[in-house]
């Protein structure tokens, strides 16, 4: 099949960037979307032009490195699919495809279609963990966890950190990402000691990184390649309100005269 590609090209962080149109013939329908871009890049190099930079690594839908906005959808038109797992059989001869990077203040463009998602790592630094020292764990089967709870925690834990939720959100919010992490731990006994701290700190960090606010558009769950539900956003809201508004401060256990 033949394709017309409109691709965002930007030399570096400072460059203004622009769309450039490319024509590609002989695209095989069994190719993955990224393999199609590989073919384009090989042709560009042979012509002496600069290949299109895009992020990718495992190419099996789990590392979360890849991510392109394809014709207006993060990760493209297929639901529950990462860009690397999208195959060209979902396009047809003569299609025009517009390819853009994730757009968010918190994800500055590094080059072409590559963005800097270190803001997600920084969110994780604000409590996306259980503070447990190596070697201090008890026997794994001492803690009973109902299968349903564990499965639900796994639903949240499947997040691959690709950032499509942010890219799709009309407000550029990172709520689905943060909610998945907070819920994962809130559902498990291991996450209880730091439950409140985690919710408060991660939500505050989200603010500091320049993400937008959730207005319940539900776009994030619709593009999430792991189909993570916005039920977790409800859970995050609950966790945050319980931790910050409803519960008393955990201090004041010592009497002070004046």
């Amino acid at each position: 099949m033949k394709l017309k590609l409109n691709i965002w090209r930007q030399k570096n962080r400072e460059d203004r960037g622009e769309f450039v149109t490319y024509h590609l013939d002989d695209v095989n329908s069994h190719m993955s979307f990224l393999e199609m871009l590989d073919v384009l890049n090989q042709q560009l190099i042979e012509k002496g032009e600069q290949p299109v930079a895009f992020e990718h690594d495992c190419r099996e839908g789990i590392c979360g490195a890849c991510g392109l906005v394809i014709n207006g959808y993060p990760h493209g038109p297929e639901e529950g699919t990462t860009t690397c797992q999208l195959h060209m059989r979902h396009f047809k001869d003569g299609d025009e495809i517009t390819i853009e990077p994730w757009r968010s203040k918190a994800f500055p463009v590094v080059k072409d279609l590559v963005v800097d998602r270190s803001s997600l790592d920084r969110l994780m630094q604000h409590g996306g963990f259980v503070s447990i020292r190596t070697g201090s764990a008890e026997d794994a089967n001492n803690t009973l966890i109902p299968k349903e709870k564990s499965d639900l925690a796994m639903d949240a834990a499947e997040c691959i950190g690709c950032g499509a939720c942010v890219a799709s959100c009309p407000n550029g919010a990172a709520m689905l990402f943060v909610s998945a992490k907070v819920s994962h731990f809130a559902l498990l006994p291991q996450g209880q000691p730091e439950r409140k701290r985690r919710a408060i700190q991660m939500v505050q960090a989200m603010q500091d990184e320049g993400f937008g606010a959730c207005t319940n558009y539900r776009e994030c769950e619709a593009v999430c390649p792991k189909r993570i539900s916005i039920n977790f956003i409800g859970m995050l809201n609950r966790e945050f309100i319980k931790a910050s508004v409803l519960s008393g401060a955990e201090k004041g256990g010592k009497y002070r005269s004046k």
Binding site: Y73, P170, N171, G172, Y217
Partner: peptide
């Protein structure tokens, strides 16, 4: 806050779930 969260807009952006009332 939301206005500032995406300084550069998409050229093509489609939605799947957002309904009229939300938009």
């Amino acid at each position: 806050q939301n206005l500032g969260a995406r300084p550069i807009k998409y050229r093509v952006k489609k939605t799947r779930e957002t309904d009229l009332s939300a938009r």
